Amino acid sequence: MTDLDIAEVAQRAGVPASTLRFYEEKGLIASVGRRGLRRQYDPGVLERLALIAMGRTAGFSLDEIAHMLAPDGQPRIDREMLAAKADELDRKIRELAVLRDSLRHAAACPAPSHMECPTFRRLLKAAVSRKRAHPWGTSPYRQELNG
């Protein structure tokens, strides 16, 4: 297969050309040359871009992803790092599930006003304490919703 023009790579990968140039500046991808003013890429860049997209979707930073991509194009993925990210995603999923349940409760609460609902007031209190005590940490909502 022949080299791909930057516009074709952008279209196939679903990212703007500016993202490709940025990734190249960060060392995540490399062009193989130019045809006129347009960068050319090896077709293998599409697989590398898919790995980058997967890493971004999982919440890895570009620097973390850069460490997972060897210059030869082969991934060198740290399994412990993957396991830690999976654990982090599990925590986030639990937190989002609690938030979903809280919203469902608020939507279906029979109290005349949400401020008259004891469960809703506990949720508000938990939200305030969470911001003070755990700005980036785990959620106390579950125990408040069930309490």
Rank of each mutant, 00 (worst) to 15 (best):
L4K: 00
D5C: 03
D5M: 01
E8I: 01
V9N: 02
Q11N: 14
Q11R: 15
R12E: 04
A13C: 07
A13W: 05
A13G: 07
G14K: 13
V15W: 13
P16F: 11
P16L: 13
A17Q: 15
S18E: 15
S18V: 12
T19S: 15
L20Q: 02
R21H: 02
R21A: 04
F22W: 12
Y23G: 04
E25D: 12
G27V: 00
L28P: 02
I29A: 08
I29G: 07
A30W: 06
S31F: 05
G33D: 02
R35L: 01
G36P: 00
R38P: 05
R39C: 00
Y41I: 04
G44Q: 07
G44W: 05
V45F: 06
L46F: 09
E47N: 08
R48H: 03
L49F: 07
A50V: 08
L51S: 04
M54V: 07
T57N: 11
G59T: 04
F60R: 11
D63G: 10
E64W: 01
I65W: 06
I65D: 07
H67Q: 11
L69T: 00
D72G: 09
G73A: 02
G73Q: 00
Q74A: 11
Q74E: 11
P75G: 02
P75M: 03
R76P: 01
I77Q: 01
D78Q: 06
D78E: 09
D78C: 01
R79L: 10
L82Y: 09
A83V: 14
A84R: 12
A84H: 12
K85M: 11
D87S: 14
E88L: 15
D90L: 14
R94F: 11
E95V: 00
A97D: 15
A97N: 13
L99A: 13
R100S: 14
S102N: 13
S102A: 15
L103T: 01
R104F: 14
H105K: 07
A107R: 15
C109K: 10
P110T: 13
P110H: 10
P110F: 10
P110D: 14
A111G: 06
P112V: 03
H114K: 12
H114G: 15
H114Q: 13
M115W: 09
M115G: 10
E116G: 03
P118H: 03
R121Q: 10
R121P: 00
R122Q: 06
A127S: 15
A127E: 12
S129W: 14
S129M: 15
R130A: 13
R130P: 05
R132H: 05
A133E: 09
G137F: 10
G137A: 11
T138Y: 10
S139C: 12
Q143I: 14
E144Y: 09
G147S: 11
